[in-house]
């Protein structure tokens, strides 16, 4: 399908590390997209978060703000976790993995949240996004996956319970390894986790101070409506406010030092994610009961097959049909 490309409809978009010129599609394509259903696969949420993975949270929020007609599927079912990773966005036969790929694909199919930003605002978005990824992301990864107490008492048991065997093992192992690699890449000269935590908290404090002063009393970073920067900030600030973290007191720090960031998170919760957060536990339960029959049958088939094979083998060995 062809694109109408005129000087008027060239738009500037910017999210995270990417900064592209996007050509809006013509009316026929837009109509086609409206009726098309997409699928977004995410890690389930809890504790008032729509997902326990910040990239999944960002993907859900993007689709909500941009009003993308998509089904949200949870990684807590065998069918989803066998074929997809999280977050992943399915558009027909195309699958986009990771928030960066998802957001840039959504921008390319008309759902662009940064439309209307001036070049200076695009530049600022890029700089602040870099700061969040460099200073806030490492602390969240550390607290969730490297810090022993939080990981062993909260994050790991939760994932083991919610995700399916054996995917819960793969998922948690992968996340722990990538978080450890990230921390090692930044602080390869330091081994003491307590000292590393102090460095990370200091960097995050700088970042949160900057974000809070930039947001000021406005509703969103660029005043009128949320953009990709608001999504990134929400994705990395909301877990600190909502997760019942054990060993780090960053929740109270944010509430007392940067109350406008807490209000910002509550505002987005109420406006875009209210129904998902309220029904979040219900969503998990519903999705489990929906697939309960399939899951039982898969597990039952595997257990029965293994039992049958082992019985036959034991019988064969006992009777001397097979000599070991």
């Amino acid at each position: 399908m062809s694109c109408e490309i005129t000087l008027e409809n060239i738009e500037c978009s910017n999210s995270g590390n990417s900064f592209n010129i996007v050509f809006p599609l013509n009316k026929a394509q837009i109509m086609y997209n409206k009726f098309m259903k997409y699928q977004l696969n995410v890690v389930p949420g809890d504790y008032g978060l729509v997902s326990l993975d910040p990239e999944c949270t960002q993907s859900i929020l993007y689709t909500r703000i941009a009003k993308v007609p998509c089904d949200i599927k949870l990684l807590s079912s065998y069918r989803v976790c066998t074929f997809y990773s999280a977050p992943s966005f399915v558009n027909g036969k195309e699958v986009f993995n990771g928030y960066d790929a998802i957001s840039s694909h959504l921008r390319s199919i008309q759902y662009n949240l940064d439309f209307g930003l001036s070049s200076k605002q695009c530049s600022e978005t890029m700089a602040l996004s870099s700061m969040i990824l460099q200073k806030l992301r490492p602390l969240l990864e550390f607290i969730m996956w490297v810090d022993k107490r939080n990981n062993e008492e909260l994050i790991n048991p939760w994932h083991m319970k919610v995700l399916r065997i054996p995917f819960n093992y793969y998922y948690t192992k992968g996340k722990r390894e990538s978080a450890t690699d990230l921390i090692e890449a930044i602080y390869d000269f330091e081994d003491n986790p307590e000292i590393i935590k102090d460095y990370l908290i200091k960097a995050a404090t700088d970042c949160l101070t900057s974000l809070s002063s930039r947001l000021g009393k406005d509703d969103y970073f660029f005043k009128k409506s949320p953009t990709s920067l608001d999504i990134l900030v929400y994705g990395y600030v909301s877990p600190f406010l909502k997760l019942p973290l054990n060993s780090v007191d960053i929740t109270n720090m944010i509430k007392s030092l940067w109350p406008n960031l807490e209000t910002f998170v509550k505002r987005i919760d109420a406006k875009y994610l209210g129904d998902l957060i309220d029904n979040e536990r219900f969503l998990i339960r519903e999705s489990r009961t929906q697939q309960n029959d399939d899951e039982v049958s898969y597990s039952a088939i595997i257990i029965l097959s293994l039992s049958a094979v082992s019985l036959v083998l034991t019988f064969a060995v006992n009777k001397g049909f097979i000599k070991l």
Binding site: A127, S130, K135
Partner: peptide, 18 residues
């Protein structure tokens, strides 16, 4: 001022990050 300092730190992150 504080806002400009924050802005400066963000652009320094951009140079490091990209």
């Amino acid at each position: 001022n504080n806002e400009e300092k924050s802005d400066m730190r963000a652009y320094m992150c951009l140079v490091h990050n990209v």
